[in-house]
Structures are given as C-alpha cells and as structure tokens.
C-alpha cells in the first residue's frame, strides 16, 4: 500500500455529543493513490459526513484517517487549513461559489490563499477555466451563469492547486440530466489527465458506473465493497 492514498480505520462520527446519533459507525477502507472510487448510498446514510472528514472540514469522533501521508485526526486547525489548501480539492452539490466574485476571481481564491503572485494566478485560473470549457465566461458573476457553468467553475477551483485528492459530493445533484451528463464527462476527462485520487459521492448508480470502476456502498454509517451482483 502506498502512503499517498486514503486509509480509514474504525472511523466513528456522531452528532450531538456522546449519546447522539452515529452518522458513521466504524468505517474501514483503503483507497490507493490515483484510484477512482464511488461511494453510493441512500440519502442520510452518511456519505457527506464521510466526505467532509476526507475533505478536512470536520473531525471524526474516533478512529484514524490518513490521507496523502497526513494523519488527519491529529492535525491542528492550522495544519487542517493547509491540508485543504494544497492536498484536497472538493466539488459540492451546491457549487459554493462566492457571489461577489467573477468566475475568474472565484478560481483565483485558492491561488491567492497559496500566496501566488498575480501574474501566475491569472495565468493558471484562465488555463483551468479553459479546461472546463468556460474561456468565454471568465468575467461573469455566478448569478450570470447556468447551473452547469457554475459547477464547471467550481471544478476548476477544486483542481487549480493540483490536489492529490479530489472529492465530489453529489456534483450533479442540482443539475438536469443532460447537464449532469456533461459534467460527468468533464470530470472523467480531467480525472484521466490528473493522476489524482478521486472519490465520488452519489446516490446515482449510473453516474458512479460511468466514472468509477470501484464502488463502495454506504449503509447506516458503514461502508462495504460492492460486489458485481449488487447493482445487477
């Protein structure tokens, strides 16, 4: 096993203190570097909870989580921020773009936080917007863009710092089927280009099928490997 993948051991996450509901009830999994994996499960099964832990946005109640060589469960909040900045890129269902900033400025944010100079920022952000097919829309604000275009901006932003791990939480959940299909297409292409480890969270088995060979099933806070019959 390489040290650069994702390694989870007995991950527990419960909300509302000790007696609260367990959203994750002992998750164990190993994802190797460069692997593309889909997590499938019903709504409320704990998929987003798991992804937030992987994204460094939240901490497990107990258990160990090592991603790209970092032990996330023992990082300080400053180190966590650093991890989010340069190791992981996240695409959300609701796009999460800053409304006051244009497409270009939104993609620029991670570069600013990384301390890149203006020249480099403009060049890289433009290049990524080009890659997601939005070179003609770079000075538009989110409210001037369609849902699909907004998600493309979000994808560019997630990838602009060239993260080792890319996480997507229902990236097509807010889009109609045609647009969703285009976004899936784009994600597939980009994942082929970058050698990043890719984790897709979705309740849509078709999309999971199209993007990822390996599929994991989330059920009541536990993760199991999907055998081929399960979706047949």
């Amino acid at each position: 096993m390489t040290g650069c993948g994702i390694q989870a051991e007995a991950l527990y996450k419960s909300y509302g203190g000790a007696g609260g509901v367990a959203a994750l009830a002992g998750v164990n999994c190993v994802i190797e570097t460069g692997q593309r994996v889909a997590v499938i499960g019903k709504s409320g099964s704990g998929k987003s909870t798991l992804l937030n832990l992987f994204a460094g946005l939240d901490r497990p109640t107990s258990g160990q989580l090592t991603i790209a060589g970092r032990e996330l469960h023992s990082l300080s909040s400053k180190e966590m921020a650093r991890y989010r900045l340069d190791t992981v890129g996240v695409v959300f269902q609701a796009f999460q773009l800053i409304p006051q900033r244009t497409a270009l400025q939104n993609v620029e944010v991670p570069l600013i936080l990384a301390g890149k100079d203006r020249q480099t920022r403009l060049q890289q952000a433009t290049q990524w917007l080009d890659k997601v097919g939005l070179s003609h829309r770079i000075h538009h604000h989110p409210y001037e863009l369609s849902g699909g275009e907004q998600q493309r901006v979000a994808i560019a932003r997630a990838l602009v710092n060239q993260p080792k791990v890319v996480l997507a939480d229902e990236p097509t959940g807010n889009l109609d089927t045609t647009t969703a299909s285009d976004i899936v297409q784009l994600l597939t292409e980009l994942c082929n280009q970058t050698q990043a480890t890719f984790l897709l969270v979705t309740h849509d088995v078709d999309i999971a099928d199209r993007l990822c060979k390996r599929k994991l099933i989330m059920r009541d806070g536990r993760l199991t490997e999907a055998d081929d019959d399960s979706h047949a």
Binding site: Q96, V109, L113
Partner: peptide
C-alpha cells in the same frame, strides 16, 4: 457567513 465558509473550505486559516 457562506463566503467565509467557502474561503475556509478552500484553505483559509482562522487568522487569515
């Protein structure tokens, strides 16, 4: 608030 959340999610520290 959402903006600050987004900034944090892409790597902004508390002190920043």
């Amino acid at each position: 608030t959402p903006e600050f959340g987004i900034l944090k999610s892409v790597g902004a520290t508390n002190s920043m």
